[in-house]
């Protein structure tokens, strides 16, 4: 029960309080780039969830069983980037072979995720927070869900912006960034809630 509770806290905090896009400002590029349409945004979100889970499953053991015993913690970034990039490539090859429909759906987004810093951020943060393997996986799932949530919410916001009359100097990127900051402010409101939920 205690374990379940702590896992729930990890999920909720990585979805809402420490949302990777809106609180930690990681993965802003896809957040602004592919949030124009809802279907694209959700496609990207689902692809990110899959990649985050796989990346964590691969990077956590490598950190614990190879880098840490050899005292090579400082090589973390380089090793993780290489691993994530290769994993995404492999995932793409496998999907293309066995689930072509899913590959066609995610096709464009998978290569983009290779360099999504939110994925690297999750892998690194899991180590920094001292999570065990199960906790790391749960936290990755939460981070992915948080990314999906942010993307879907922001896609809605942007479709409303498209229909409204924006003053000329604010059109385009400017109003998008302002809207993103409002959304981020809203998420700041979750700070401190989750920790006290089960207190």
């Amino acid at each position: 029960m205690e374990v379940f509770k702590s896992l729930l806290v990890i999920v909720l905090s990585s979805v809402l309080v420490n949302n990777y896009v809106l609180s930690r400002f990681l993965g802003i590029c896809p957040f602004l780039g592919v949030s124009k349409k809802l279907d694209q945004a959700s496609g990207m979100g689902v692809a990110v969830i899959a990649v985050m889970l796989i990346a964590t499953a691969a990077t956590w053991p490598i950190q614990k069983f190879i880098l840490d015993p050899l005292g090579l913690g400082y090589m973390q970034t380089i090793v993780f980037i290489v691993i994530i990039a290769s994993l995404v490539q492999m995932l793409e090859i496998v999907l293309k072979k066995f689930i072509p429909a899913l590959h066609a759906g995610l096709g464009v987004y998978l290569p983009l995720i290779t360099t999504n810093c939110a994925v690297l951020g999750v892998a690194v943060n899991n180590i920094n927070d001292g999570y065990n393997f199960l906790e790391s996986m749960v936290s990755s799932l939460g981070a992915g869900l948080g990314f999906l949530l942010a993307m879907v919410l922001f896609a809605g916001v942007r479709s409303r912006i498209d229909e409204s009359k924006v003053p000329k100097p604010f059109r385009g990127v400017a109003i998008t960034l302002i809207a993103a900051s409002f959304l981020s402010l809203a998420f700041m409101g979750f700070g401190g809630i989750v920790d006290n939920l089960f207190a």
């Binding site: 490598i62 190879i66 880098l67 050899l70 090579l72 090589m75 380089i78 090793v79 290489v82 691993i83 290769s86 490539q89 492999m90 090859i93 496998v94």
Partner: peptide
């Protein structure tokens, strides 16, 4: 050696996958 090894393993894996 570790970084080269990781790279090598991943490279071989990618080649096998393809």
């Amino acid at each position: 050696l570790v970084v080269a090894g990781v790279g090598l393993v991943l490279g071989i894996l990618l080649a096998l996958f393809t």
